[in-house]
Nucleic acid binder design. Structure first.
Lengths: 222, 222
DNA sequence: TTCAGAATGTAACATTTGTTACACATCGAT
DNA sequence: ATCGATGTGTAACAAATGTTACATTCTGAA
C-alpha cells in the first residue's frame, strides 16, 4: 500500500517510512468495493477523507429528471472529493460509483486533520490538491459555458490534440462524449457529420484526424 | 484597516493586535482602483494574494466571441481568486473588473505562504476558504447543467426564497440575471411571461411572489 | 463463428432558445 | 420637469438542439 501512497499527490516528497509513520499515528481502514457499486450519493455528508488505491471511480451529477452529466473519472492514487472535506458545504457534489472492483483508504476527518498537522509537506500537498480541484471545476465551467455543440467539440479536440500531431486519441465512445458535453447523442453525431462534411476533421474508430486546424480554431475565434 | 481584516474569513478568530503582528511580518501594499478598471485578465498568472478592502469587484468569464457570463460579485472583506493562488494552474479564470472605486490589500505569494505558516488559525481559515470556493464552483456547475431556462429560473427562485415567505427579493435586473444564467435577455423575459401566465409566479419590480410553490417545485422534479 | 448488445449514422419532426426589432417604462442627473 | 440611458414586454422569425425511430456496424462472449 505504501508504494501506492508514495506516488499519490498527497504524499508527494515523502518516503515509505515517513508515510508509514504518519499513517499509523491515525485511524484508517481499507474498504473494498465492487463494480457498479455506488459509494456515495450526491448530497451526502463528506465525513471521511478517501484515497483511491485500486480500481476506477466515476463522479456524475444527476439532475432531477434522472439524466446525468458525467463530470470525471478518478484513478488511483487520487483522493476522492478532496475539496469537499472541509468548508461550509461539505456534501458530495456527485454520485460516486465504481467502474470496476477496487479499494479505497478511508480516514475520518478529524484524523485526517491530524495527519495534515503532523507534516507540513502533506499539508502543502493537500493545499495544492484542493486548489487544483477548484481549478478543474473552473475549467469545467469554461467548457460548459460554450454555447454550441460545435464550440464544445472544437474546444475538446484542441485540448486533446496530441503533441506535434494532428491526431486526437479517443478514450470515450460518442455516447460517453455526449454525456460529458451534456448533449444528446444524435446531436453530437450530427455535428461530427457536419464537420466531416466541411473537411475540418475525419472521424475514425478510435481517433480523430484534424484536417484543417485553422478552421477548427476559427470555430472558437469567430 | 485591521477592523476590516478582523471581519474577513481569512483572519476569523484573531484580534486586531494578532492581525497587526502577522501582517507586519510580511510585505504588503494597498492598491487603489477606480470604477470600471480591469484589475486582471482571464489567463493572467496569479502571483499575489488579494483581499478586497473597499469597493466591489466582478468576475466574468469572457468567451471567444466576446460574450460574457457573469460568475460572481466580490464584496469586502473577501479574498480575490483564493483558489488560484496555489495549485498546478494558477491563472485567473475570469476577467476581474471594478464595479466602483475601492482598494485591495496585496501580498505576494511567498509572503502569503509565510503568513499562513505563521499562524495555524489563518491556515485553517484559508483551507476553509479554498474548499468553499471549490464548493461554490461545484454548485455553479449544478446550475449550468440545468437544461432549460425554466429549470434554471425555478432553481434560482427556490434557492433565493426568503425564509418563511413566498417572496424572492431581486438584487439583479432581468438583464443581470440573464447574464448569470448564460441566456439571452428576451428568452428569459419570455419564460418569466409564461410562468406568470400559468399563475406560478408574479413578477414585480424588485421582488417575485411565488403563487404556486408546488408547481414551481414540479419543474425540477418532473 | 455466431449472436446479442452496444455503438453509430441518419432522417423527420418537435421544442427550445437566440436574434432582431420596436414600443414603452423607469430612473437618475441636470 | 426633461432628457438620455437603461431596463422591460413582446412579437416574428431563424437557428440549434432534442426526440424518436430505424438501419447498420462493431465488439466481445459463448
Amino acid at each position: 500500500m505504501f508504494e501506492i501512497l508514495k506516488s499519490s499527490p498527497l504524499f508527494k516528497g515523502l518516503d515509505n517510512q515517513e508515510i508509514n509513520l504518519l499513517i499509523n499515528r491515525v485511524f484508517y481502514r481499507i474498504r473494498q468495493f465492487s463494480d457498479k457499486e455506488v459509494l456515495a450519493f450526491s448530497g451526502e455528508r463528506v465525513e471521511r477523507a478517501m484515497l483511491l488505491l485500486e480500481g476506477k471511480l466515476q463522479g456524475e451529477m444527476v439532475d432531477y429528471a434522472g439524466g446525468s452529466l458525467k463530470i470525471e473519472e478518478i484513478d488511483p492514487p487520487q483522493m476522492v472529493a478532496p475539496a469537499f472535506l472541509y468548508g461550509p458545504q461539505s456534501f458530495f457534489p456527485v454520485n460516486l460509483s465504481a467502474l470496476c472492483d477496487g479499494k479505497i483508504l478511508i480516514i475520518a476527518r478529524n484524523d485526517f486533520t491530524q495527519l495534515l498537522a503532523n507534516d507540513h509537506r502533506v499539508l502543502n500537498n493537500y493545499l495544492n490538491i484542493v486548489s487544483g480541484r477548484a481549478q478543474f471545476l473552473s475549467r469545467k465551467i469554461t467548457f460548459l459555458s460554450f454555447k454550441t455543440i460545435r464550440e464544445k467539440l472544437a474546444f475538446y479536440l484542441l485540448n486533446h490534440l496530441k503533441q506535434d500531431t494532428m491526431l486526437v486519441i479517443l478514450n470515450q465512445s460518442q455516447k460517453g462524449m455526449a454525456d460529458i458535453f451534456g448533449v444528446a447523442r444524435p446531436s453530437l453525431a450530427r455535428t461530427i457529420g457536419e464537420m466531416e462534411e466541411e473537411q475540418i476533421i475525419r472521424w475514425e474508430k478510435n481517433q480523430v484526424v484534424i484536417l484543417n486546424l485553422k478552421n477548427l480554431r476559427a470555430i472558437l475565434g469567430k
